[in-house]
């Protein structure tokens, strides 16, 4: 059961945590090692796993500790690094928010039907309705409609909404 939970957390958070770690240590290889260490820890310590399941911010915290640990331990303990670690707190909030906002949006978008999903993804990337229509070879009106549908479905997923009428 533990393996299943860990796998689920891994699939859900790996991209965000790796990107988060990379911001802190500036190396994608080290970032991956750090994320792996964090997940190994979840395997060894059931209470950590429970905490991570209940509160995803905990995973970011674990990554942060490991990252600082790494920065301290590694050879670059010169002044520049010391200053960097000291100022990390300011960047941390931003790093966490950027990764987590992206991840949550991405997760919600992922649950949309394929058609509306591609319209929305292209729109988020800044393409106009006309450009999207050309890229997907559909009518501009369709793009607009699909965008509306996508936004509505997305809102429904972000906040669980229930609606009903009768006639």
């Amino acid at each position: 059961m533990r393996e299943r939970d860990i796998h689920h957390l891994f699939v859900t958070y790996y991209p965000a945590l790796k990107s988060f770690a990379e911001r802190l240590v500036k190396s994608s290889e080290t970032a991956e090692d750090i994320v792996q260490d964090v997940f190994l820890r979840l395997w060894e310590k059931p209470s950590a796993l429970e905490e991570a399941k209940a509160n995803s911010a905990y995973l970011y915290q674990m990554v942060r500790f490991k990252a600082i640990d790494y920065l301290r331990r590694e050879k670059f303990m010169d002044n520049a690094i010391r200053n960097y670690v000291a100022n990390l707190a300011e960047e941390e909030e931003e790093a966490y928010l950027e990764e987590e906002v992206y991840r949550r949006m991405d997760e919600a978008i992922d649950t949309l039907p394929p058609g509306v999903r591609s319209v929305l993804t292209l729109s988020l990337k800044g393409h106009s309705a006309k450009e999207v229509a050309e890229m997907l070879d559909i009518a501009v009106e369709t793009v607009k409609k699909q965008k509306q549908i996508a936004r509505r479905m997305l809102r429904e997923r972000l906040v669980k909404i229930l609606l009903i009428f009768v006639h």
């Binding site: 911010a57 915290q61 966490y96 928010l97 987590e100 949550r104």
Partner: peptide, 8 residues
């Protein structure tokens, strides 16, 4: 971090 999560 839990405050951050609310802001997220």
């Amino acid at each position: 971090y839990s405050d951050y999560s609310i802001i997220a």
